[in-house]
Each structure stands twice: as C-alpha cells, then as structure tokens.
Amino acid sequence: MYILLFFVAHWYLSLFSQTFFLHRYAAHQMFTMSKGWERFFYVFTWITQGSSFLSPYAYGVMHRLHHAYADTENDPHSPSFSENLFDMMWKTKNRYNAILHHPDIVEPKFRKNVPNWPLMERIGDNWLSRVGWGTLYTLYYIHFATSGWEYLLLPVHYLMGPVHGVVINWFAHKYGYTNFKVNDTAKNLLPFDFLMMGESYHNNHHKLGGRANFGVKWWEFDPTYPVILVLNAVGVVKLKKNNDLNYM
C-alpha cells in the first residue's frame, strides 16, 4: 500500500510540475507569475521530479521547437523519424542537452522570455542531485516494499519526467482521436484524461497552442485547468485575457 501511494503521489506531483510549470508556463506562457513564485515552482519542480528533473529553460525552448516543426526532421521528438520510442527518447535527450548547454544554437525567438534560474538549473542537472534522489527512492522501497514485483516500479521513479514525455510525444502522435485538422499527427490520447492531467488532449493543444484549458469537448476534463483558475483567483498566477493564441 505504501509503495503504491508513493508511486501515485510521485506520478501526479511530477506530472503537475511538467504540465503547469514547464509546459503551460515556461513554453507557452499562458499565464504570468512574479519572480518569487517562479523560483518557488523551480524548487517545487526539482523536488517533485527529483532524479528526472527537467530544466524549465531547455524544456520550454524544446517544446516551442516541437510546435514550430512538428513531425518534420527538425522536430526534437517525432515518432515519424524514430524507429521506436527508445530511439526517440535518445534523440530527445541529445537535443535537450544541446539546448541546455549550448543555448545559442537556437534562434532567439524560441528563447524569448523562457524562465532561466542558473543556480537551480545547475543543481537539478547535477548528477549528485539525480543520484541522491534515486537513492532516496530506493531506500523508501527497501523499507516499505512487501513484494518483489514492486521493485519493477523503481525505474519509472528514476525516469519519471521522460516517461511522462514519451507517453505524449510517442503515443499521442500514433493513437487516439482528433477534434481538429492540424498539420501534424497530434491526437487526443484519452477522452477522459485521468492519467496525464490534460496533457493527452494533444490534438486540441496543437490546434489551440496558447489555450490554458486543454479540454474542448464537454467530456474532456483537464484536471490542471481548475488548479490554474484557483491560483489565478488567489493571485499566484495571472491568466492572460486571450490565451487561445499561439505563443509566437
């Protein structure tokens, strides 16, 4: 029971950091926040993603490139140019690291206003930090695991951020349904997105790239959007008045 609770908590907390802070804020800037809150969510992302911490800067830039060049050779992660999902993950890793360590390789328009806190970027990307988080996960399992099969979940903890990414970037470009005609293969993976907190409405998002609510049809509930509304109501973030526009 303790193992499953920990897995579910890690899955959704890490996913929230990715969809709320890295995706909707860093990449698309669907809302604004103060520098203080931005740094709070930087730290929150480091804690919740742990060993698989993804740089808000590199993620934001890479995701903008994905929208600009979806399903072309310049797309950082397209199933159309990879033999399997592991090949795509490897290519994504290489592109991510290139953006992170050599920012000038990307045109300035893709880097505009993307958050960048060098201190937390260095801490999160440091191998001592990654191994430290992984060690904590392992010790938790050693203490609470009651069956051998539970240890099969540990690799997901180690790679939680990339796992979330590949669910959408691979499967939501291959399977699902479409509400809109777009110039790529983006699909809505789940009609009710209980698993990916709205991220699986990928076709909707590719059509309405700046829309904070990823759901469109009445049954397409985006669990992250009500959280954004609450944070907007209490002043943590400020939703842009017209967030149906693309970021560029």
Rank of each mutant, 00 (worst) to 15 (best):
E199P: 00
I228Q: 14
Y59K: 02
S52R: 02
A68T: 08
R64C: 01
L54F: 11
M160A: 11
I3L: 06
F214E: 15
V182R: 01
I47T: 05
V216S: 12
H206A: 04
H157Q: 13
N203P: 05
L54G: 14
L152A: 08
P155L: 06
V106A: 07
G36H: 11
E73I: 15
N116V: 08
H63Q: 10
G124Y: 06
I3F: 00
G50Y: 12
V237E: 08
N246R: 14
L85W: 15
T48Q: 06
Y141P: 11
L119P: 04
N94M: 15
S51E: 08
F144R: 09
Y137I: 10
S129C: 08
T135F: 11
S78M: 09
K187E: 04
P108G: 03
H10I: 15
Y69H: 14
S34F: 06
A58F: 06
S51C: 04
T92P: 05
H102G: 09
R24I: 10
G210D: 13
H77A: 10
L195Y: 14
P115Y: 05
L13A: 01
P115H: 00
K240F: 11
W170K: 03
P226Y: 13
N188I: 10
H63D: 03
R122M: 07
N179L: 07
S55E: 03
I168N: 06
N232R: 10
K174L: 09
E220R: 02
A172M: 07
K207I: 02
L153E: 03
W117G: 06
A212K: 01
N74R: 15
H206T: 08
T72I: 13
L15A: 03
G235C: 07
T178C: 10
H67V: 02
A212P: 02
T146M: 09
M1A: 15
Y12I: 01
F81Y: 13
Y247T: 14
H23A: 05
D71V: 04
D244M: 04
H10N: 15
F221C: 06
L22Q: 05
